[in-house]
Design a protein around this nucleic acid. Structure first.
Lengths: 155, 155
DNA sequence: TATTGTTATACTCTATAACTATA
DNA sequence: TATAGTTATAGAGTATAACAATA
């Protein structure tokens, strides 16, 4: 696996990028595992977290839009929003223009909880924060490119 | 949030690292979501994946060791290993020195499946592979440091 | 008596299908 | 008739407690 070539890139370069990317995925996976401890502290479930990360203050997506964002079934969103409402983190709002749809908005408590959660979840590891500015900028460009590479319909 | 300071680092530097780290976590989260499609292709569940990523060919951890690695209950490991055995990916081995413990080893099929899975899961995004060698090396050092920063007992 | 792993059981999360209320 | 969301129900995944085998 170490001497292989691809795209005209030499084997050793390929393998460096591969090793670093792998490490990156592994460190971030650990971050997710750690987040379960954070969640316990805040009295939240992974479902709560997922919702709080997607919902933005000032917006009020419909149940259907949330199902799309979460890549899950409509009934699952009903269940999840029930849990969030029980915790007082979101509220269902009926829209006058079409009384079938429900718009989901963060409550003030929900906004606070979201901030708390993001503060902890996205906390920058010291070693990463110490990286050179130029390196971070190059990395950011690459990340933007990766974002553009994504297929338009993420089903 | 943009003008805050920490550790004597100026606000704008702090905020660049923060933004890039956040992007990084978001890209890798997407990678996990994408992996569910890969899993479907391979006929595996997220549980299968988790196990295959942890198990190494040539090693045979005990059930208890797996429970620690997965941060889960002993009975959950029993259940998970049952699923893996049904698929022919692992086998339980009794140890002569202590006939209570079961050692879990990848079967030849399991090794193949692990390779296939890792090939796809750790596939390097082109934009990342195109980064400068020096940048990748700096990043690798930071990642190693992050690894060392981890608390020794990850409960 | 303590430890390793399993079984019985219950709870959470997720999906499918049938339903209610609007449109 | 079609659509947005809910309810009834079933299945996967996870945990707690009681258990069997071994130390």
């Amino acid at each position: 696996m170490s001497g292989r070539r691809a795209n005209g890139v030499t084997g050793s370069e390929e393998s460096l990028a591969q090793a670093v990317w792998r490490q990156l995925l592994q460190r971030t996976m650990e971050r997710f595992v750690q987040s379960s401890a954070t969640l316990r502290d805040l009295g939240l479930t992974p479902g709560h977290m997922r919702a709080l990360l997607v919902l933005e203050p000032g917006t009020q997506p419909t149940m259907g839009a949330l199902a799309q964002a979460f890549h899950c079934d409509a009934s699952t969103v009903t269940w999840l929003v029930d849990r969030l409402e029980e915790r007082g983190l979101v509220e269902r709002r009926s829209l006058a223009r079409d009384r079938r749809v429900k718009a989901i908005a963060l409550t003030p408590d929900g906004v606070k909880m979201k901030q708390l959660l993001e503060q902890r979840f996205f906390e920058v590891p010291p070693a990463f924060g110490a990286l050179d500015r130029s390196l971070l900028q190059a990395l950011r460009s690459a990340l933007v490119e990766m974002d553009n590479d994504r297929p338009p319909a993420p089903r």
